[in-house]
Design a protein around this nucleic acid. Structure first.
Length: 839
RNA sequence: GCCGGGGUGGCGGAACUGGCAGACGCAAUGGACUCAAAAUCCAUUGGGCUGCAAGGCCCGUGUGGGUUCGACUCCCACCCCCGGCACCA
């Protein structure tokens, strides 16, 4: 028998498939389309086992759709802009372009070893001007629509990477850079923003897409919509001066006993009384310093300083003191609040500390009028609230909001935690922002006809922390497109999340030089049907690309509002020690080593078998051997019966699927009326396995699909000698190979060929099953007495409830355990269980 | 603190819509083959008790309660773990 030699057969088939363009997706095919996309990799240099974990199961799922007769688009590319390339340039003197392209070349080779059905002809590399020109084009379109703007704002700056970061790229309590872990600092800089907040409400709507609850919640929390009322407070003895506060609790306005401004609030200086000035200044200084120093002391006591001015409560005319306190943030709402200690925990602490009155305006149930031990945050009955007293607070909320609105003092408003997307990066290796600063005309966009603004190739990479573009005179100095005078280019480049916001559209027509993508091809392929990738992108990439799609819709480029209909997040593969893989831990698994020993099919199948795909989990070098043994058994069970004279399939052709659909054989072996019991059992195994594997792959339950195939192969091995040569056996072997084809494509192709079946197994129809055969002929009926299992009997599958009942009642063991007691009830679960309940 | 997810053998994990808990794999133990080893194959493998044996009995899905003929699954309370957000007014 031929030995299973994965390394040789895998190389052989990969070459052949590529030569034959086996997996090419055809634009405008008559078949239904299916666009299956996996997040493209960053070309870091080596293909990591994590890439395999993300991609191999995706490939299997995409292959399933193909075998089921869909025209599948399964593209790949590289997220090729980004900091590591530039850092390599600074450290090793290699140009980012060269570094990136060499990495891509190496990763292409490694990716090919996976045997996936990617279409390399559609490959997209984002650092190619052919690609990033459209980033610039989109930017200009957004600028035209008022969605791109430049503003001076306090922004997050990473001192190690020497660049600004989007709010989303600053992580954790310690506020560190998402990329390098360095604590960020605040800087006041003029930067470009994209107005994602204009779409905040729409981004909260996930109807029409099947995305994991987890991601939807993450995005919803990130957007952080809260609904309330913004109203005006006038300041006593400062005619014409007022400030606005935002509250989600207009029902508590009567309970305001103080007001707070953020330390950076513009009115602070103006309103501070002369005798308070020194103290207020000191507080402001302290607050400013604190935002720069680590804010690690989490349970910091709330403090503040009275500024010596008083605000007037618009509901009852009361005069309340104004404070500055750093628990109020300038960046949220209006940077000022009403202090309602009875109904807000923070205000409560603050009022306690400074001995401010605590007025209850929403009475807790059964409140006896005594002071509250802590802030009461729930609903209740309004108290001390003028004409609103006695109303349920829920109603008071609306009535006071109405009242403020009618009097022109305030209006209902939604506030968002989401900020506009800061896209300026002070680095070289990204898309140049196509803008020009002219001393006469101001900020002028680069005309579309002048695109792309190319990165100069001869930039110098010095460890100064200054952008090479800023130091590159020939790039920086230009002519103003409006007046023709001397002007300067914007030297900042775009956040690389711009690239990934629309790359799925580029795959549709990657070489189109006229527009970002061909709208006709787009109408056929778009949107993405299934997207897969890690959950770490939940509030960055996945939010940005939804935003981008909505902008494209408003531009008339697409007719839908959501870029990806279904999303699946796979888990993270860990080192053998259960820890995150890292070079310093020395627990990194190199996929190439395994590919070169046990083969890509084994690595693929093992990654799918390890557990639920969404769960990730530790790598286990013994576990992979078990999967390899399984493939070896598959090989043996097929090969050992290859020589049998009856083993050749009678009718086989392009459409020779095993099931009903497109079946060339009008009377498959499994439907014959005169089959033996053994044949019936074999056919039952075949069909129930087809059903199980089909259902599991559909739901991305690769682990249980493989477990079912293992059971099937164990069974086939047991009955091999008795069954070899029968038609049911032949059907079984064919089905086995077809079911394996998406997960382990090489061994499937090799075995398919060895059986004398026509090339290629990957052009075959996915087997369908016969529901009758999939059901078992015999069922094990569990007999219980009072809920305890007392016997198990084999019964025919279609046994009636009445028969099951009498069978149970006459069963010897059942009678024994009834112990002479009366029957109170008999519960029958058809085909499964009978429970005799005694009195 | 809030939001989301999760706790099942020595390990990774199965279990339809409330109906045989532990599929499949790893590890382990015993055996076959071998001069020997590796590989392979066969058997056993949740815990406890009991029987010469075939077998029998009890306990068991984080904890405590509840609903039900019957609960890993549903309800209530709690503990622990993972992820996210966090002075957001």
């Amino acid at each position: 028998m031929v030995r299973y030699d994965p390394v040789t057969i895998e190389a052989k088939w990969q070459t052949r498939w590529e030569k034959d363009r086996l997996y090419e997706a055809r634009d405008f095919d008559a078949r239904r389309k299916y666009y299956f996309l996996t997040m493209y990799p960053y070309p870091s240099g080596d293909l990591h086992i994590g890439h395999w974990y993300a991609m191999a199961p995706s490939d299997a799922a995409a292959r399933l759709w193909r075998m089921r007769g869909y025209n599948v688009l399964f593209p790949i590319g590289f997220d090729a802009f980004g900091l590591p390339a530039e850092n390599a340039a600074i450290q090793h003197g290699i140009h980012p372009y060269q570094w990136t392209m060499e990495n891509i070349a190496r990763m292409r080779r490694q990716l090919r070893s996976m045997g996936a059905m990617w279409e390399w002809s559609r490959e997209v590399v984002t650092c190619d001007p052919e690609y990033y020109v459209w980033n610039q084009w989109f930017f200009l379109k957004m600028y035209e629509r008022g969605l791109a703007y430049r503003a001076l704002a306090p922004v997050d700056w990473c001192p190690k990477d020497h660049t600004t970061l989007a709010r989303e790229q600053v992580v954790g309590d310690e506020r560190v850079c998402e990329r390098c872990g360095t604590p960020v600092i605040k800087k006041n800089l003029e930067q470009w923003f994209l107005k994602i907040t204009a779409y905040a409400d729409e981004l909260l709507d996930f109807s029409g897409i099947e995305w994991p609850e987890r991601v939807r919640t993450l995005q919803t929390n990130w957007i952080g919509r809260s609904v309330g009322v913004e109203f005006e407070l006038t300041v006593q003895d400062h005619p014409g001066v007022s400030f606005r506060v935002f509250t989600t609790r207009p029902d508590t306005v009567y309970g305001m006993t103080f007001a707070v401004l953020a330390p950076e609030h513009p009115l602070v200086d103006r309103l501070t009384a002369p005798e308070r000035r020194a103290e207020v200044e000191a507080y402001k200084f302290k607050a400013a310093r604190q935002s720069d120093i680590e804010r690690l002391s989490t349970e910091k006591e709330r403090d503040g300083v009275a500024i010596g001015a008083f605000a007037i409560n618009p509901m009852n005319g009361d005069r309340v003191p104004i404070f500055v306190a750093d628990y109020v943030l300038l960046t949220y709402g209006t940077g000022a609040i009403q202090g309602v200690p009875a109904h807000d925990a923070r205000d409560f602490d603050f009022a306690r500390k400074y001995r401010l009155p605590i007025t209850v305006v929403v009475a807790p149930p059964g409140w006896d009028g005594r002071p509250l031990p802590e802030a009461y945050l729930e609903e209740g009955i309004m108290a001390n609230s003028g004409p609103f007293t006695g109303l349920p607070s829920r109603e008071g909320w609306e009535r006071i909001a109405d009242d403020l609105q009618r009097r022109g003092v305030g209006q209902r408003k939604a506030n968002y935690r989401l900020h506009d997307w800061l896209i300026s990066r002070q680095r070289y290796w990204g898309t140049p922002i196509p803008m020009i600063f002219c001393p006469r005309c101001g900020t002028v966009p680069v005309p579309e006809s002048d695109l792309p603004v190319r990165l100069p190739e001869d930039a110098e990479f010095l460890p100064t922390g200054e952008s090479p573009l800023k130091l590159h005179e020939r790039f920086r100095r230009t002519r103003c497109p409006q007046c023709g005078g001397e002007a300067e280019r914007e030297t900042d480049t775009m956040d690389t999340f711009i690239d990934s916001s629309w790359y799925q559209y580029r795959y549709v027509s990657p070489r189109d030089a006229q527009r970002p993508f061909d709208p006709q091809a787009g109408r056929y392929w778009l949107p993405v049907d299934q997207y897969t990738g890690g959950v770490e992108h939940a509030v960055m990439h996945l939010l940005y690309t939804r935003f981008w799609t909505k902008v494209m819709r408003d531009m008339g480029l697409v007719s839908f509002s959501e870029p990806m209909l279904r999303l699946f997040n796979q888990g993270v593969i860990l080192g053998e020690d259960g820890e995150k893989m890292s070079k310093s831990r020395g627990n990194v698994v190199n996929p190439d080593e395994y590919v070169n020993s046990v083969g890509a099919d084994t690595v693929r199948a093992y990654l799918m078998f390890i557990g639920p795909w969404e769960g990730g989990g530790p790598w286990n070098s013994r576990g992979i051997e078990g999967v390899h043994r399984f493939l070896q058994r598959v090989w043996n069970v097929v090969h050992e019966t290859n020589g049998n004279p009856h083993a050749r399939s009678a009718g086989s052709g392009r459409s020779a699927g095993t099931g009903e659909r497109g079946n060339a054989d009008p009377q498959p072996a499994s439907r014959g009326g005169s089959r033996s019991r053994d044949n019936r059992e074999l056919a039952h195994w075949t069909h129930k396995t087809i059903k199980k594997v089909t259902d599991d792959l559909e739901g991305f339950h690769f682990n249980t699909a493989i477990a079912a195939l293992m059971e099937y192969v164990n069974y086939l091995t047991r009955v091999k000698s008795a069954q070899a040569g029968s038609r049911a056996w032949q059907e079984a072997r064919r089905s086995l190979i077809l079911l394996l084809a998406p997960m382990t494509p090489h061994i499937a192709e090799e075995l398919w060929e060895s059986m004398g079946e026509p090339y290629s197994v990957h052009h075959q129809q996915w087997p369908s099953y016969d529901a009758t055969l999939a059901r078992a002929e015999l069922a094990t009926l569990v007999l219980q007495v009072d809920g305890k299992v007392r016997d198990r009997v084999q019964v025919p599958a279609g046994l009636t409830d009445a028969d099951a009942k009498s069978l149970a009642l006459s069963n010897e063991k059942v009678r024994k355990f009834m112990d002479g007691r009366q029957v109170a009830d008999v519960v029958v679960v058809p085909g499964r269980l009978v429970n005799v309940v005694t009195k």
